[in-house]
């Protein structure tokens, strides 16, 4: 099978880029990567270690414009005879993959968590009902598109570097003009974070978030919050996780002073390990937790931070 994997890069390769190439190599076939963004040839060549046979790069296309990227990938799919196109289910894919699905009349599977089962057709497991269930989706079209949920596959380097070729994607004019980009310096973007410390209304007020941030910085974690906390303006909106906020699946999710409402769980139940800190032993969150601490966050968080610092120091 000819497989085309799309990635967008900044200077370095994101973990999600390595995940999708690893995923493609698990499916097996001729794997070509089509890349946009700033990463140089030497960086892109490393994708060979994860299973890519070749990288095509067009640095003129901007990931901001879904129409440009759609034209680029459609052309690359045509050139390589791709039957399967793979994305990481990120913000770019959410705009581009559906467009490509219509353009190529290729069935789209969003939020895949496993490799396709081809024993009887082409069936892929996805998360549905905001992570409260899974579904098996069959694709009936000849061409197919999969958008892989981040953090579903660990990147695995097995091979050697591959060739990188400039590719003219004939992307045309951009219809979307970028006026301004605001990225907080240094902060770990929530959807990519492997460790997350989150807090809710139990923290009583924004002035108490210092202890949440202290634990996050001791761990090297991102911070998140429940919806009411963002709604009342204690924390910025982009930290709101849950059904109506960001859905995340970090390796570790620590929740302090969050009750564990079903709508909150919907955004975090894909986390590998959940730690809950709550004064109320009956808080529903404990049912979804791996480790629980019944206690006052104001007392537990600083102790937790101290223990993490001690552990980190002992590791050196």
């Amino acid at each position: 099978m000819n497989i085309l994997v799309y990635i967008n890069t900044s200077n370095a390769l994101a973990k999600s880029a390595l995940e999708v190439v690893t995923y493609a190599s698990k499916i097996g076939g001729n794997i070509t990567v089509v890349a946009t963004g700033a990463a140089d040839d030497a960086t892109l060549a490393k994708l060979g270690e994860y299973g890519a046979q070749k990288v095509l790069v067009d640095r003129s296309a901007s990931a901001e414009d879904a129409q440009q990227i759609t034209r680029l990938i459609a052309k690359a799919a045509d050139t390589t005879g791709a039957e399967l196109i793979i994305f990481s289910h990120d913000l770019v894919a959410k705009a581009v993959a559906p467009r490509l699905s219509v353009r190529l009349k290729a069935g789209l599977i969003s939020g895949a968590v496993d490799v396709p089962n081809t024993a009887n057709g082409f069936v892929v497991k996805v998360n549905v009902f905001s992570g409260k269930a899974y579904g098996q989706v069959a694709v009936t079209s000849a061409k197919k598109i999969i958008s892989l949920l981040p953090n579903s596959f660990q990147p695995a380097a097995t091979g050697a570097a591959c060739g990188v070729e400039a590719f003219d994607g004939a992307v045309g004019a951009a219809a979307i003009k970028v006026v301004e980009t605001k990225k907080p310096e240094g902060a770990i973007p929530l959807p990519e974070a492997e460790l997350v410390v989150s807090a809710g209304r139990g923290m009583k007020g924004p002035e108490n978030w210092g202890m949440v941030e202290d634990l996050a910085s001791a761990l090297g974690a991102a911070t998140a919050c429940s919806r009411p906390v963002a709604d009342i303006g204690w924390r910025p909106h982009h930290e709101h996780v849950g059904q109506t906020g960001v859905a995340i699946r970090p390796n570790l999710y620590i929740a302090a002073g969050i009750s564990g409402a079903i709508q909150h769980l919907a955004g975090v139940n894909g986390s590998k390990v959940i730690v809950v800190i709550n004064t109320d032993p009956e808080a529903p969150f404990f049912k979804a937790a791996d480790y629980g601490v019944v206690g006052d966050a104001f007392d537990v968080l600083p102790k937790f931070t101290e223990a993490v610092k001690k552990f980190r120091a002992s590791q050196h």
């Binding site: 901001e64 990120d90 970028v178 006026v179 301004e180 973007p189 990519e192 982009h238």
Partner: peptide, 12 residues
């Protein structure tokens, strides 16, 4: 709109 790790102002 949201972009990975931030927000962006765009026109169309």
């Amino acid at each position: 709109r949201e972009i990975v790790g931030g927000v962006q102002v765009v026109e169309a």
